[in-house]
């Protein structure tokens, strides 16, 4: 109940601003040409949805994010696990990865375009790069910080190496890995915008570019809102899907 009240309180400011803007434009106080009132944005959204365009754009964007996320997460988990468990590899590879991590990922865009053209490959790759780093850092950090004694208890009971990895290391690193994946997914949405801005014929980013070129601010805002919803929804799906894996943590949080 109290939490519901707090959510409601958070809505007050945006709602008031929206209503205020609507009234201001309605009464002719401002033109609303550069920032259309909520009703116009809503109408644009409905139009886009009704024509089926919105679904097509959302789908294109989600597929890119999904593919980039899969590749980036898989590479991040694999590299993170290898680097954390094999010291040689850590000394050999980790400094380079950390150096690459310092490069603002958008700086890759021109290079990727040169290498892979402007079709799907560079877009998915850019998103994958964005997803890779938080996952890599999360996984390698989690493995490195597993309590040595938890492993020793397993050794005392003579768990096989496989059982040790499966029953002790995996659950121990899962929470940090999931945090990494979640951060990665968020970055995936950040990067899909950049990827679609570099040239696309469909996708929410295309709606942004198109809105700018043809001076349709309502379309831009509509795309922004859809981005926010899609990102939030994807995050919720990830959290819901992975919740059973860390249920013990939820009970820990509840009892706090």
């Amino acid at each position: 109940m109290r939490q519901g009240g707090r959510v409601g309180l958070g809505l007050v400011l945006p709602l008031a601003l929206a209503i205020g803007w609507e009234i201001a434009v309605d009464s002719g106080l401002v033109s609303g040409r550069l920032l259309p009132p909520p009703s116009r944005i809503g109408a644009t959204l409905l139009d886009l949805a009704a024509s089926g365009d919105l679904l097509m754009h959302v789908e294109a964007t989600l597929i890119r994010v999904g593919l980039g996320f899969l590749w980036g997460a898989a590479a991040g988990i694999l590299a993170g696990a290898l680097v954390a468990t094999l010291p040689i590899l850590r000394w050999l590879v980790d400094p380079s990865v950390q150096a690459l991590r310092a490069v603002p990922s958008l700086a890759w865009v021109p290079l990727f375009i040169l290498w892979f053209g402007i079709l799907e490959t560079p877009k998915v790759l850019l998103i994958a790069v964005g997803v890779f780093f938080p996952v890599y850092v999360g996984v390698s950090g989690a493995i490195a910080s597993v309590d040595r004694k938890l492993v020793e208890v397993g050794r005392i009971f003579r768990l096989s190496r496989l059982a040790l990895a499966w029953r002790i290391l995996l659950p121990a690193v899962l929470p940090a890995t999931l945090v990494g994946l979640r951060t990665g997914l968020g970055l995936g949405f950040l990067f899909v915008v950049a990827a679609e801005l570099m040239g696309a014929s469909e996708g929410l980013g295309y709606l942004l570019v198109d809105g700018q070129q043809f001076s349709k601010p309502d379309q831009i805002v509509a795309a922004i809102i859809t981005f926010a919803l899609a990102g939030k929804l994807a995050d919720m799906v990830l959290v819901t899907l992975t919740r059973p894996l860390t249920r013990w943590q939820d009970t820990a949080r509840e009892s706090l």
């Binding site: 009971f157 003579r158 768990l159 002790i168 659950p171």
Partner: peptide, 25 residues
């Protein structure tokens, strides 16, 4: 060896923790 601090597995229930050795065998 019973450690100085309990070092239980936080993701396993008490039963699951106690079960570990038997599972391994």
């Amino acid at each position: 060896l019973v450690f100085q601090d309990p070092t239980l597995y936080p993701w396993r229930t008490v039963r699951g923790n106690v079960a570990l050795g038997l599972e391994a065998q």
